[in-house]
Amino acid sequence: MMAQEDKILQETPSQTVGPYVHTGLAPWAIGLDVFKTDIGAEIVGPKSKGRRITVSGRIIDGADDLVRDALIEVWQANANGIYRHVEDPKFGELEKDFRGWGRAWTNFETGKWSFQTVKPGPIKDRDGVMHAPHLNIWIVARGINIGLSTRIYFVDETDANAKDPVLNMILPEQRRQTLLAKYRDEKLKTNDYVVDIALQGDHETVFLNT
C-alpha cells in the first residue's frame, strides 16, 4: 500500500440516487422545465471530428428484468484520443465544441439508453502505454448504493483491444466480452453499436474500482 499521509479528511459517503433521479439530473426526461440549458445533451458538437456513432443498450438486473430508472454518464476522449481536461497534455488541440461528457437515462418503457457521439481514438496514457478506444461509463439508479464505473470498448478494434492493459487484467478472459460494444448489424457494420450492461447474473458486466 502507498502511504496516504496527505489525507486529513475522509470522503463523504455515497447514497443511492433513488427512483426520482430525473427530477434533479435529467428534468427533461419528465417534462420538468426549470433549467434553460441541458448540460448533458451534447457530447460533441457539429464541428467535432471523427466517425459519428450511436452507442446504445439496456441495463439488466439479477432477475433479467430491465432497469427502467437508471441514469448513465459517459466521459470520453475525442477522435484523436484527447480529453477535454487541463491534465491532458494535448488539451490545446481539441475542437472547441467537443465536450466529451454526456448524460442519458434508460427509457421508462423500453429500458434503452443511447449516446450519439464520435468514436474516440486510442488513448496514450502518461507512461506511454496505449489504451484501446473506449468510453468511460458511470451508472446510478435506485438500488445502487454507490455509482458503478465501467468502460465500453469496440468490437472492431481487435488489435488495440488485444493490447489494452485494462482488458488484459480481466480474468476469466471471457468476461472481457461484457465490455465490448458490437455492431447492431453484423453484416452491414453501420455506425450503430450495442452493448447491454448486466448489474448481476451470468453475464454480469465487469465493473471497475477506479
Partner: peptide, 21 residues
C-alpha cells in the same frame, strides 16, 4: 437484484480516470 456479485476490478488511475468534465 441490482448489486454486482463480482468484486470490481481495481485500476491504478490512468488518464481516463484523472480527467473529467
Amino acid at each position: 437484484l441490482r448489486s454486482p456479485k463480482h468484486a470490481p476490478l481495481t485500476l491504478g488511475q490512468t488518464i481516463s480516470e484523472i480527467t473529467g468534465p
